[in-house]
Design a protein around this nucleic acid. Structure first.
Length: 167
DNA sequence: CGCGTTTGACCGGCGC
DNA sequence: GCGCCGGTCAAACGCG
């Protein structure tokens, strides 16, 4: 990769004025947390557990559906961040298109999609049951357009981190 | 008014 | 063949 696949940053090098800074806007308020049997194993847990997982998962996506296609794999980036809000503003505009409960998790998973035309980037946000402070954001696909927000986006950070999926 | 969120229904696949 | 499951769509609503 390296030629075109710019995961999050623009090779154009236009937006390079942002630094570390997650935008914490409004608090999303607790959802209906009904105390049920939610005991996950969740071993890592905790606090400084800030890690990112780069998985070039396949895309065959779902279980082997495509016939001729075999090289198109959809890059998937998972980020685990400690945040009090689910909404991490990365500079793009997202439209929520669904919300589903996750097994073994008290909190639902939110599905977002980039509102750009031609930009089919999807995003998933999930919060851990035990540690509500941990939010897992999964990005799928790449943007074909510049970031709307010229402010800080942690995408720059991401680019700095060299989060490239090694297929 | 435009647009993003919300929520239930629907869908394709897999497992049993 | 049916049920479960994760994911997506779509109509309605609310908000700016």
């Amino acid at each position: 990769m390296s030629s075109t696949p710019h995961a999050f940053s623009n090779p154009e090098g236009d937006s390079s004025s942002g630094f570390l800074r997650l935008k914490i806007e409004n608090e999303r308020v607790p959802r209906t947390s009904s105390p049920s049997s939610d005991q996950v194993r969740d071993s890592s847990s905790s606090q400084e557990n800030q890690s990112f997982a780069t998985g070039a998962q396949s895309d065959e996506v779902k279980h082997g559906k495509k016939k001729g296609e075999k090289k198109i794999r959809k890059p998937r980036y998972a980020f685990q961040t400690r945040s009090q809000v689910d909404i991490l503003d990365d500079g793009y505009r997202w439209r929520k298109y669904g919300q589903k409960a996750v097994k073994n998790n008290k909190f639902p998973r939110s599905y977002y999609r980039c509102t750009h035309q031609g930009c089919n980037v999807k995003k998933q946000v999930q919060r851990l049951t035990k540690d509500e402070g941990v939010v897992v954001t999964t990005y799928e696909g790449m943007h074909n357009h510049p970031i709307e927000k010229a402010t800080d986006n942690f995408e720059n950070i991401l680019s700095q981190m060299q989060i490239y999926t090694h297929f």
